[in-house]
């Protein structure tokens, strides 16, 4: 039997992990474990990138709890331009930066957010995702997870960059990512291999950040329970 492409094997592992009926952190961890088993060089490169980012305090200057969330105007997956103020007019919002349609961790994350949506909207709270991907891929993410919330396009990671949340992937990681079938240059339509640090901000209707999660280890995301609790207490 011909050896299967690494990207296909990883895709199967991703589908298995996404379907697990366990908390988000466990689904993410399950996929991280699968990557470690199936593609040890990739896992090693990820560890190296993550520790380099952590040592250089990447993301440390992102807006903090108690500070105002910087304003934005971004196109959603259908090309409508939306401002942060428009979102806040409808209630407190969880803003989740994700790396893109190609990223299995982000697809698991968006899936978990979509599953939480019912509870969120019942309390007049909202979710918004931001990716550097073009609309076609933003729409794909949304459809894939059956997410009712908007997925915004941050062209060239401009908004993420202005928040100190943009990172460069690096040459070695880039090579390994392409081999694994994960290519953000296709989804972003640009070859600069910049990505946002996944981050979630809970913003009250006054524009003030009530809770945040920023971790340069992109295998980690804000726990859904933490997001729900922060959204509930936000005004």
């Amino acid at each position: 039997m011909a050896e299967r492409m690494l990207s296909d094997v990883l895709e199967d592992a991703f589908v298995r992990c996404r379907e697990l009926d366990v908390p988000l952190a466990d689904r993410l961890q399950a996929f991280a474990n699968e990557t470690r088993r199936l593609d040890p060089p990739f896992a090693a490169a990820t560890d190296a990138l993550v520790s380099r980012l952590a040592e250089s305090n990447a993301g440390a200057t992102a807006p903090k709890v108690g500070e105002p969330m910087p304003a934005f105007m971004l196109p959603d997956e259908q090309g409508r331009l939306v401002r942060l103020d428009d979102l806040l007019g409808a209630g407190p919002v969880a803003i989740a930066f994700n790396r893109g349609q190609w990223c299995p961790y982000c697809r698991i994350n968006i899936d978990a957010l979509a599953r939480a949506e019912e509870e969120v909207s019942a309390e007049r709270r909202h979710i918004a995702a931001i990716v550097p991907d073009r609309q076609r891929f933003a729409m794909w993410l949304k459809t894939d997870a059956q997410a009712p919330f908007p997925v915004f396009t941050d062209v060239d990671n401009g908004y993420a960059m202005s928040l100190g949340l943009a990172i460069w992937v690096g040459e070695e990681m880039k090579r390994l990512m392409v081999k694994s079938g994960w290519d953000p240059s296709v989804t972003q339509g640009t070859d600069n291999w910049m990505l946002p640090i996944p981050a979630t901000f809970i913003v009250g209707t006054d524009g003030i950040i009530r809770a945040r999660f920023v971790d340069p280890d992109y295998r980690m995301r804000m726990a859904i329970e933490d997001m729900l609790a922060a959204l509930r207490s936000a005004k």
Partner: peptide, 12 residues
């Protein structure tokens, strides 16, 4: 990247 960050701020 720098230009797009400036753009993001201007649009906002």
């Amino acid at each position: 990247c720098y230009e797009s960050a400036l753009t993001a701020k201007m649009l906002a």
